[in-house]
Design a protein around this nucleic acid. Structure first.
Ligand SMILES: [Mn+2]
Ligand SMILES: [Mn+2]
Length: 206
RNA sequence: ACAU
DNA sequence: CGATGT
């Protein structure tokens, strides 16, 4: 049931609002002249689009689709990303559903981590998460470094160990152990930021 | 140079 | 402007 949970915004119709089924939506726009309505993959996106109104929604959509294309994205996937305050600095990472940005996991912040450690841990967490769910979905990352470290099954950070980051190095050890003892066929895909904009798991701080 |  | 990495 949560599979086909699209949301429908009706800006202009017999009863404007947000509906959770096409059946309900159709009732409000059927035979209504020039009805303004559209489906969204998540309630959050529907609320935002409804709040901004039809005209502003179309304007913003045009502005961003002018900069970025959406072609070639594997929407049936998850996406991971890391962020830090300072590098090295307070680091966190998360994984989301690509299509909806629904957060699947979020770890940290951990003191004194690097961007690349975060991207690496995020990917391993994603792999373990999908295996645990018996899911064959691919994973997107925007980090070439993390992709390469996963191929080598090794976090090749140059960060020096200290009292602040011992927890983090423990996590790294666990991640490497997971890679050494688990098989996966999860396709690891490069998110093409230049063409598509920020990865859906991005923390939006830049 | 490329990717964060 | 600074840092993490191949
Ligand atoms: Mn990233
Ligand atoms: Mn990011």
């Amino acid at each position: 049931m949560s599979k086909s949970s699209k949301y429908y915004v009706v800006w202009e119709g017999y009863e404007p609002g947000i509906y959770s089924s096409w059946t309900d939506c159709k009732l409000k726009i059927q035979n209504y002249p020039n009805a303004k309505y559209k489906s969204f993959p998540s309630l959050e996106e529907a609320k935002e689009a409804y709040a901004m109104g039809f005209f502003n929604y179309q304007k913003q959509k045009k502005a961003t689709s002018k900069t970025f294309s959406t072609e070639g994205i594997e929407w049936n996937s998850i996406a991971v990303d890391a962020a830090s305050s300072g590098n090295p600095g307070k680091m966190e990472y998360r994984g989301v559903v690509t299509k909806t940005k629904q957060v699947l996991f979020h770890m940290g912040p951990f003191p004194n981590g690097t961007n690349n450690i975060g991207e690496f841990l995020a990917l391993v967490h994603g792999l373990a998460f999908l295996k645990n769910k018996k899911s064959e979905l691919p994973i997107y990352t925007d980090s070439k470094i993390a992709m390469s470290w996963i191929r080598q099954k090794k976090c090749k950070t140059k960060l020096a160990r200290n009292s602040e980051n011992e927890k983090l190095f423990e996590l790294i050890k666990r991640a490497e152990l997971w890679l050494a003892t688990n098989s996966f066929k999860t396709p690891i895909l490069k998110w093409q930021t230049k063409a598509w904009g920020e990865i859906p798991a991005d923390f939006g701080r830049k």
